[in-house]
Amino acid sequence: MARIILISLLLTSVFIANGQDDLLSMLEEEIADETFPVEATFKGTRLINGHSIETRKKNNFDFLISHRFGLISGGAYELFGLDQSNVRIGFDYGLTDYFNIGIGRNSFEKTYDSYLKYRILRQTSGKKSMPVSVTIFLSTAVETLKNNNKSVIADMSYANQILIARKFTPALSLQIMPTYVHFNKIEATQLRNDIWSLGAGGRLKLTQRISLNAEYYYQKAPLSDNTFNSLAIGFDIETGGHVFQLQFTNSQSMIEKGFITETYNDFFKGDIHFGFNISRTFQLAKE
């Protein structure tokens, strides 16, 4: 009997002894039951040359200007490539937070491009934890250089990707990009219409507003014997509504079918293009 009373007194004193820490841990348990989306895996919708899993939010309109200069190995005579320049002018638009469309025009091979981008999975933390974000990317490009092709269809090519990314820490995000490129018509010197590639890349935040990015696309069976895998190293610099991306890459083209399959320079021989992307985001309508 005495023992039971002792136990019940003990229990009561436990209840009374519980203080603020108890209240706080009660709330912390409640929070642990919730799920939170992981935000801002990358600063921009482009990793470097290619897309990141990020999509523009609904009604956001993005104006992008990208440049790739000539080869740095051209030396002082070519001002390290700055005498030549390829330009892509592009527009991206968020139809919803998860569905984006975009168009662009490239001076390189006078190519028009368009894409659809749909985010199908979002990384989350908390109770229902989802380890990765996944975005589907479908693009079409048309070369409009004067050539012997009788139809526009023959000048068309497609690049389709599954972008899979994970933000491991606030500073480190990694992405892999299985890719399929198809050319409707290839030249006699080229080997195949269908090219499979696996890309990998990531970003490492150096400061709150500057990150170091890298991107590489591996091809087992390339378009032709004289192509190289695309490699790019760059920096993202963010200032308010702008993101500046500066990069060094062996690729001249700024669209998927081009830089993944039609890179003719060897990065490690110093055949590198300096370039930059500038994006300015406009909010067209408030929700």
Binding site: L23, L24, E39, A40, T281
Partner: peptide, 28 residues
């Protein structure tokens, strides 16, 4: 006991003037 505790998940704040501003709030 005259005690209290509040917790707010900071990333749950919404509003702002643009989604980018919200991202900067959380990230930077």
């Amino acid at each position: 006991k005259r005690q209290f505790a509040f917790i707010i998940p900071v990333s749950s704040f919404d509003g702002f003037n643009s989604p980018l501003q919200r991202e900067h709030f959380n990230e930077n």
